[in-house]
């Protein structure tokens, strides 16, 4: 199940593991990404809390956790190849995987159609 936030993060939920990153729309708005700071493994993220930082040539932007959970894996490839977020934002450019609680609240997240409509409304 793939869902989206209004802050332009995507999250794929597979059982109790949620993988997240930033959307293609977000990378397009940011432009060339030159640095990504992903969260450390073991860190507990709050839903909506700061999870990562992406830096384009122009500016730094915060990335928020779409769900609460403990970081069980971070995409270490982004340290050497931050441009992967531009090239493959919703696949190879993922940021981190979270272990989430059963029954996590996803009611505020959008499905793909809703997210596309949201982007079109901006």
């Amino acid at each position: 199940m793939k869902l989206y936030t209004k802050d332009h993060e995507w999250v794929v939920i597979d059982g109790d593991v949620a993988t997240f990153g930033i959307t293609d729309h977000a990378q397009g708005q940011l432009g060339d990404i030159v640095f990504v700071e992903v969260p450390e493994v073991g860190r507990r993220l709050d839903k909506g809390g700061e999870a990562a930082v992406v830096e384009s040539v122009k500016a730094a932007s915060e990335v928020y956790a779409p769900l609460a959970g403990e970081v069980i894996e971070a995409n270490t490839k982004l340290a050497d190849d931050p441009g992967l977020v531009n090239l493959e934002p919703e696949t190879g450019g993922w940021f981190a995987k979270l272990k989430i609680e059963a029954g996590a609240d996803t009611s505020d997240l959008m499905d793909q159609a809703a997210y596309e409509a949201f982007v079109a409304s901006l």
Partner: peptide
């Protein structure tokens, strides 16, 4: 214009 479609890195 802050950038064109080529992007800041390519323009630089």
């Amino acid at each position: 214009p802050v950038q064109y479609p080529a992007g800041i890195l390519a323009e630089h």
